[in-house]
């Protein structure tokens, strides 16, 4: 598919630019900002990945946290290598997701939403009760090895970029089609002899493994993690990224993540009114552009008569 190839080439180019920027830019704040956008984008892509099967996974924050804590334990308590920490984070998050998914994906819609919400809160409470991982105050001193520390932002952006491209490739593959088929009508999928439950579990496991890896990367870039970082409110913000960016296409989720992260940083500077602005922004965005930024771009494109490039974003179903 030529259009697909164009997207892959464009994203590979973007990835190179990002990595290069992370290597060249010396300003600490700018680099941090880039990393925040990258992690937000990963979170948004993973939440959207489970939206493909039509489920809203509030436990996105929980799996991100499981990855971060796994990596933190390996790095600070066992002094393990960074690669091992990242792999273990992905594997542990994936395994927990397999068990979680196998139990909970039998229900759907509001029930899945609420149960994933409950799961997130249980996991968070468990962290606060476990003294070995720092209880309420969390873990400190999670650093990447000194030798690679200057290159760590570039490595992080490279890995996240590759994971995002991978998620997109899966979405476009036959498996991705199956996810969307389940969203449209799971009975039809069932009727041709495919186990809907297994496919749904696969979807959640893929997203969660990616989240676990992301959590490990975050833990090493932030150096400090605490239970409060992984509450359900994180998933809520991520859902806002996806919704405001537009959930039709992965680009929408990434745009939303970048836009709202930057907006959030700007509002932090404004001060105490952050919540009011953020809440207001979400409501206004939902009222003015129910299809998100990409939907708005699409409409604008149609009106101006050059719908083709923008339209191609939204119209693969």
């Amino acid at each position: 598919m030529p259009r697909d190839r164009r997207i892959y080439i464009a994203s590979a180019l973007l990835l190179c630019v990002g990595v290069a920027a992370a290597l060249i830019v010396r300003d600490d704040y700018t680099v941090k900002l880039m990393l925040w956008i990258a992690t937000s984008a990963l979170l948004a892509a993973c939440l959207r990945f489970v939206l493909l099967i039509g489920e809203l996974n509030i436990a996105t924050a929980a799996f991100y946290g499981i990855g971060a804590y796994t990596a933190g334990v390996i790095t600070t308590i066992f002094n393990g290598p960074l690669v091992l920490a990242m792999l273990a984070a992905a594997v542990v998050a994936g395994l927990v997701a397999a068990v979680f998914g196998f139990i909970t994906l039998r229900v759907k819609g509001p029930y899945f939403l609420l149960i994933s919400f409950a799961f997130t809160e249980v996991v968070r409470l468990k962290y606060t009760q476990s003294n070995i991982i720092g209880g309420n105050s969390g873990m400190i001193g999670i650093f990447p090895p000194v030798a690679i520390e200057p290159y760590y932002p570039a490595i992080m952006i490279a890995i996240i970029g590759l994971v995002l491209i991978g998620l997109y490739a899966i979405e476009r593959s036959p498996l991705g089609m199956l996810f969307k088929a389940i969203k449209s009508n799971d009975q039809i999928v069932l009727s041709v002899g495919i186990s809907v439950l297994v496919v749904k579990v696969i979807c959640v496991v893929i997203a969660s493994a990616a989240l676990g890896l992301g959590g490990a990367l975050y833990a090493h870039s932030n150096n400090v993690i605490s239970p409060g970082d992984f509450g359900f409110l994180l998933s809520v913000f991520v859902l806002a990224y996806v919704k405001i960016g537009g959930e039709e296409h992965m680009v929408g989720a990434l745009l939303g993540a970048a836009f709202l992260t930057l907006l959030g940083q700007y509002l932090m500077g404004v001060g105490a009114h952050e919540r009011i602005f953020f809440g207001g922004a979400i409501i206004i965005a939902m009222l003015v552009m129910p299809q998100g930024l990409t939907g708005l771009a699409l409409q604008l494109g149609r009106r101006l008569g050059w719908a083709t490039p923008a339209a191609s974003l939204g119209q693969h179903k």
Binding site: L56, G109, L113, R275, I276, F278, M286
Partner: peptide, 24 residues
């Protein structure tokens, strides 16, 4: 009013109101 029977849309809207009202 615009998100009746829309689980995910209304969820987002309600979170928007949570943040806005709590801030206010």
């Amino acid at each position: 009013e615009r998100y009746l029977r829309d689980l995910i849309g209304s969820f987002i809207v309600s979170i928007g109101f949570v943040l806005l009202l709590e801030g206010l």
